[in-house]
Amino acid sequence: MTLILNRRQALAVGAGAIVVLGGTAGPAFAKNDSDDIIKKFTGNATPQQGRVKLDLPEIAENGNTVPMTISVESPMTAQSHVTDVLVVADGNPRAGVATFHFSPASGAAEANTRIRLATSQNIIAVAKMNDGSFFTASKAVKVTIGGCGG
């Protein structure tokens, strides 16, 4: 990601400048191909709000590694369970982040990983249930220059 190079270059200059992780001055929540990826995942079905929980910090500490937890309410039985959860980021150069695959053997539809965010944007999770229904949630994460709080 370009942001890594930006940061390294800024540090290499050693100027003590405030590092800019992405262009925060532009539109705060830009758009990429996230909608298309979601449509492909749902087969054009519109997911319902709810059941999905997306936990990310409101303000990222480090755009290169932002902790993210997804969880979906489900009994995770053979009769009723989550099969897949798609995660996209609508402000990165490319929207795709990860897809998690679950089954009743998972016991819980929960996963945590760390992701790269080039700028302030929305993270969107879409869960597919074994009955073919879809649920979604989103969270705005601010990627900031930082350094003036207190």
């Binding site: 925060t24 001055a25 303000i59 220059i145 003036c148």
Partner: peptide, 13 residues
Amino acid sequence: ERLKEVLEDVADN
């Protein structure tokens, strides 16, 4: 440009 980014960023905080 960078100065504006700094001011905007802090203003949003």
